[in-house]
């Protein structure tokens, strides 16, 4: 069945960047309609993995399938939304102009630019030039682009970095709402308290998946209440075990 097949399926993914291996055989699946969190220390390969999902990363080996097609297939370009870690919008255009341009490239319906600008809470800054936005506002403008055209898979690279707790809360409510409407979300983060809001949690370290489970079972298996604590335990267990 189409609807029961996972939205994302990654098998034995190998990636080299700058001549050095960065992902060493990553395997995981993201069920449809779920929010999958991607956590791990800086430089562990979260962004690289996300680039593979949207099909802009050259890969050395393995298979990445997205919504039933190989990642990066032309048919996926309207169905997958990507928000990059460092904002990728035109600094010299207003928020509205940026969104309207990307909306027409995506063939998104008229009025979609207005919808997403409200969803990320930038309604009052619609006519402001992107270069003059605050850091958090700019990252929300960047997120808004990924929401255009109501994609079935959203790949969001640290969408809440640098935002205050209230805004983070609001965005996670939005992510949950999108998942309830059937979208699948892969969200990377550094913030451990956000990890508890996901359906599945992928802990990465040095290009490998250390643990792939739900927040609840991660807490149970490590006996740690706090996810940060649980993460540290997983790392030390792995470090102790022979390879």
């Amino acid at each position: 069945m189409m609807s029961s097949s996972p939205a994302v399926s990654v098998r034995d993914l190998l990636v080299e960047r700058g001549g050095r291996p960065v992902l060493h055989g990553v395997t995981f699946e993201a069920p449809r309609g779920s929010v999958v969190g991607l956590l791990g220390p800086s430089g562990c390969g979260k962004t690289t993995l996300m680039r593979c999902l949207v099909g802009v990363q050259t890969v050395k080996g393995g298979a990445v399938s997205v919504l039933g097609e190989p990642a990066g297939s032309p048919g996926l370009r309207r169905r997958v939304g990507y928000s990059t870690q460092s904002p990728a919008v035109y600094a010299d255009l207003s928020v509205g102009e940026n969104l309207r341009y990307f909306a027409s490239v995506l063939g998104a319906p008229r009025g979609d630019a207005d919808r997403v600008v409200e969803e990320v809470g930038l309604g009052r800054h619609r006519d402001q030039i992107a270069a003059t936005l605050s850091g958090g506002q700019l990252s929300r403008a960047n997120l808004a682009v990924a929401l255009l055209g109501a994609p079935e898979l959203l790949v969001l690279d640290e969408p809440t970095v640098g935002l205050d707790p209230v805004l983070r809360q609001e965005l996670w409510e939005l992510f949950r709402e999108l998942a309830e409407r059937g979208a699948t979300l892969v969200v990377s983060s550094h913030v451990m308290d956000e990890a508890g809001r996901t359906d599945r949690l992928l802990l990465m370290r040095e290009g490998r998946v250390l643990s792939d489970s739900t927040p609840a079972s991660l807490r149970a298996s490590t006996g740690a209440d706090d996810l940060e604590e649980a993460f540290l335990q997983v790392i030390s267990q792995r470090a102790g075990s022979p390879t």
Partner: peptide, 13 residues
Amino acid sequence: TGGTLERLMTMPL
């Protein structure tokens, strides 16, 4: 360098 080209390359452009 600003990443907008990469973003466009994930879109049907």
